[in-house]
Amino acid sequence: MTNHTHTKCEELLGSLSAYIDGDLNPELCQELEKHLAECDNCRIVLNTTKRTIDLVQTPLEKPDLPEDVRERLFHRLNLDNYLTPKPK
C-alpha cells in the first residue's frame, strides 16, 4: 500500500494541488479520496503539503512595510504632502 512507485500514486499526485484548492472534478475527487484512505504515503504528502501552504500564509510571514521605505516611496511619487501616519 505504501509503495510509492505505485502507478496509482503517481497518477493521482498530479491532482493533489487541485484537490487542496477544492478545484478537482467530483469523479477524480472520489477516486483520490478512496486512494488516500488506503495509502499512507499519499496521505502524508497531502497533509504535509497542506501544512506547507498554511505555514507560508501565517501572519508572521507577512511583515509590514518599514516606515523609512514608505517615506522614500511617497517622496519618489511626489506624494510627500499625503504622508500621514499610516492607517491601522
Binding site: 505504501t2 499526485l13 504515503n41 502524508i44 497533509n47 504535509t48 501544512r51 505555514l55
Partner: peptide
Amino acid sequence: AEDVRPTQFVDWSALPEEELL
C-alpha cells in the same frame, strides 16, 4: 511529473506551530 515525485514520507504536519515557526 518526474520532478514532483515525492521522496520524503515523514508526517510532520502535526508538529506544533511554535516548533514549525
